[in-house]
Computed example of a mutant assay.
Amino acid sequence: MTVDRDARSTVPLPADLADRPTDPRRGVPVPFVSDAEDGTVEIGRVVKKRAIRCALSRICGLCGISLEWGVTFVGSAEEAEANAFHYPPLHRGCAEAALRLYPALGEPVLGQPARVDTWALVVTGGFELERPASRQGDQRVAFHANAVSEDLRLPG
C-alpha cells in the first residue's frame, strides 16, 4: 500500500503499518500508540498506557506488531542528545516510513508538542523505560537507548 501525501509523491509502507486503520481526515495510518481505549484518535499523541505496553511487550508503536532485535527510536534532535525519546520503539521500516509520511502533515506528530526541524533516527540493541517519578512536571514516559548502532539526523 502507498499513501498519497500531496498528489506529488507517495510513501511506500511496510505491510504491518499498511494494515493499520487509516485516519479519514489525513489519509495516513493511525499509529498503534495513538489509539485511546475510548476509541478517540489524535494522530500526534502518545497514549501513556500504550507506550508502556510497547516497551514491556516489545511491540512497535506504529504498527503494534512484535519487534525483533534492533529497535529504532524517532524523535527530535534534542531528544536524541538527551537520550530521552518520548515515542515508543519502532521497527526500522516503520520508523523510516513514519519520517517520510507524518512530518509532511505540517502538524505536531510522533509524540512531539510542536513541529520538528531536525529529526533523529536511532537504532539500538536495547533500551530502558523511565516512567514519571511523580505527578509533577512532565508526565510522559521516556525511552533511553543503549548499545546504539546507528544515529542519524534528518530534516523535518
Rank of each mutant, 00 (worst) to 15 (best):
I59P: 00
E107V: 13
V28I: 08
L129I: 02
R58G: 01
D19K: 14
D6L: 09
E78H: 10
G156Y: 11
V11T: 14
R5V: 15
R25A: 13
R115V: 13
E150D: 13
R25C: 02
R135P: 03
R115C: 12
V28H: 00
D35K: 09
E130F: 10
D38T: 09
D23L: 03
T124L: 03
R100V: 07
G93D: 15
E130Y: 09
R140A: 12
H86L: 04
Y102H: 09
L110G: 02
S34Y: 07
R140P: 02
L13D: 01
S149L: 07
P14V: 09
T118W: 13
G126I: 00
A77K: 09
H86G: 13
G106S: 03
F32S: 06
D19M: 13
S149T: 14
D35G: 04
F127H: 06
M1R: 10
F127E: 01
E81F: 04
A104K: 13
L13I: 02
G156E: 05
V148F: 06
D4L: 03
P31D: 05
L62I: 06
W119L: 04
V148A: 06
F127Q: 01
S57L: 14
T2E: 15
L110V: 07
V28Y: 00
D151R: 09
L99S: 03
P21K: 08
W119E: 01
A145E: 05
V141H: 01
D16E: 14
L129R: 05
G106K: 04
A15M: 11
R115N: 09
R135K: 14
A145D: 05
F73R: 01
D19A: 15
Q112S: 12
V109I: 12
V123S: 03
A77T: 07
G70I: 02
T22E: 12
L90Q: 13
H91E: 05
E81V: 12
R115E: 14
Y102A: 05
E96N: 09
A114P: 05
G137M: 09
A142W: 08
R131G: 06
P89C: 06
G111Q: 03
I52T: 04
P21N: 06
R140N: 11
P24E: 12
Y87W: 02
R135I: 11
T22L: 15
L101G: 03
C63P: 03
V11F: 07
P24S: 05
R92P: 02
I43M: 02
A133N: 07
R131F: 03
R25E: 13
V33Q: 02
D4T: 13
R25H: 11
E42Q: 12
C94M: 08
L99A: 04
P155G: 08
G39E: 07
W69T: 09
Y87C: 09
P14T: 12
A7Q: 13
A145R: 03
P31S: 04
T124F: 00
C63L: 08
R50F: 01
A95M: 08
C63W: 08
L129H: 02
R26G: 00
E78L: 12
V41H: 04
